[in-house]
Design a protein around this nucleic acid. Structure first.
Lengths: 336, 336
DNA sequence: CTGAAAGCGCTAACAA
DNA sequence: TTGTTAGCGCTTTCAG
């Protein structure tokens, strides 16, 4: 392993007997290079196994081809379909746009090293806005997913979570349920809070009692859902329908229900949120609210990139409508 | 939003009435700065909201404070405890070492942009070695997790997967099982193949038949485990014990078993691999093989960093012993 | 179509 | 303790 210094553009130029500029041109696919030089340079590059130094490129260009993805590091986040889909989506978009994805798992408080990235995607939940404020202040373009931030100069894309909560709840009520419970997501985050809000709104409008004991807090983890479901089932008057703020939690709730010898949907109806494909494979396919996470993430990257490149003017704001996907986990309530 | 150009080190120097070098010194905490200048510079930095340009730093230092994490993007990877723990571990270590984590999800074939990172961690499965070879060739330090690569100048850390497979299988056999099946991991990856290898070795040594129909291939996803478990249970002579190459798969297998009205461990024993905490919460706590993924990931980052900084000489190679964690999912086989 | 030269913002000798 | 200066490797005017 001769630890020879990495070849630089100068080495290539020398070897190809052209100027550094010409080499730069072929690297960047600038068309104004003669076929002959083009070939010479490419040969030199191959021979020297030359790869451009991104740091030098970024410095010279004054632009970074990296996008930051920041996610809160609370327990369970990584076990959520939600987070995973966003990572996949961002990762995929970065791959096709040849962007680096700088991934930050954060507690939400530590200052972020916004440095070195062209833009930042704040994914998932933000309990605390200091990081995003700092990023805006530092002049870095920001894109927020699933969290409406109208008072800052940032873009966002997300689903209408209040509407999502409403659609789910409305469906359950329309089936005839009056004892409907919710296992919430993290309610210190906007998405979780809004899903709950939609739930309450609909119940009120339909004149169905909103019982405090039917509102139990989860955090998107299966574990929290198990606890929540157990708590719900042990109630003197258990609900006949449960809306879980994520499919993962809905799945776990179904498992708990079945473990107790009850049936879904005969005894208890369940609706989830996300449209996680794995919710099709269980014993009972889950009725859910679809939010196109992967696409949202991809779109976030593309738009952010366009902003960074100056091709679009921020803020870009995009709220999608969540959609009910009816499968097998809901039915009319059992007759008393 | 006055899009004023970001303050540079020169602006700070001018404002603090010192040289650029002095500013650089306070940024980098070089002790030889007078208290007075120190304060002046800090004030200027605060006033200008200055943050160093990492690209310029990296270029000047000839060193990148970023580490790459590359993971294969095959379906299901992100739903695995395995991948998640590694991401968390790497992320955590990066956070404490103030390193950027550049995350690459790859198909294993596309050339990696190794550029711009000080070192690369290849996590999880590598079906194809071209990327790692390219990285080595490019002179980037590499650290491979859970995959022994002795013929390349790379470091690795991992668990002894053959031993893991042996321990699990041995435990089952020692309980008296003779009809023991395996749901493998991705066997195109070393870890998956070795777990299977350990399984076979032990069976042979203990003179228990290795039946082909008892070896069914999974890919660490719950879905694949469900399919595998169903296939196993539908055999004319179903196994009395199942070793799944991940806890996720073991959990899914248990679910399938229970759905069919069979009991764990009374009818069928199950052992997993990982020691995923969520395998404690189900109806039957899972017996499993522990591999300290989070710690392995952290250690990978620390060692890699030490190598990049020249504080340790590669290759650093570290194979840990997996450990059996006995809980409730295994018992003696049922009496015929 | 090509090349010379001026930076990009910072670090690290080296001198003072 | 401080400042001068020469790069780090690349892009990008601007002339030719």
């Amino acid at each position: 392993m001769s630890k020879r210094r990495k070849a630089s553009i100068e080495d290539v130029a020398r070897r190809a007997k052209v100027s550094i500029t010409t080499v730069s041109r072929v690297i960047n696919r600038v068309p104004t290079v003669s076929r002959k030089n083009q070939v010479k340079v490419e040969e030199a590059i191959a021979a020297l196994k030359y790869t451009p130094d991104v740091n030098a490129q970024r410095l010279a260009r004054g632009l970074s081809n990296a996008v930051g993805l920041v996610m809160p590091g609370y327990p369970g986040i990584f076990h959520s379909f939600y987070a995973i889909e966003l990572i996949r989506g961002v990762g995929h978009a970065c791959e096709t746009l040849r962007l680096d994805m700088v991934f930050h798992i954060t507690n939400g408080y530590n200052p972020l090293s916004t440095a070195g990235v062209g833009g930042i995607i704040f994914a998932d939940i933000i309990e605390n806005r200091s990081q995003i404020e700092a990023a805006v202040e530092a002049g870095v373009s920001c894109m927020v997913i699933n969290n409406i931030v109208d008072d800052l100069d940032v873009s966002y894309i997300g689903v209408d979570n209040i509407a999502g909560g409403r659609v789910a709840t409305d469906y359950l009520v329309s089936l005839g349920h009056t004892k409907v419970a919710i296992i919430t997501g993290n309610i210190r985050a906007q998405a979780g809070a809004q899903r709950l809000e939609g739930f309450k709104q609909t119940l009120k409008e339909k004149e169905v009692a909103v019982r405090p004991e039917y509102i139990v807090e989860g955090d998107y983890s299966r574990r929290s859902a198990r606890l929540a479901a157990e708590q719900l089932l042990e109630l003197p008057e258990p609900p006949t329908a449960i809306f879980a703020a994520s499919d993962d939690m809905a799945l776990e709730a179904m498992t708990v229900i079945m473990e107790r010898g009850l049936r879904v949907p005969d005894d208890i109806s369940v609706v989830g949120f996300d449209d996680n494909p794995s919710s099709i494979y269980g014993p009972v396919a889950l009725t859910t609210i679809r939010q196109p996470l992967f696409q949202m993430a991809e779109s976030a990257v593309r738009n952010l990139n366009a902003i960074v490149l100056g091709k679009k003017k921020p803020p870009i704001r995009n709220i999608l409508s969540p959609q009910l996907v009816v499968r097998e986990s809901c039915a009319r309530p059992p007759i008393q």
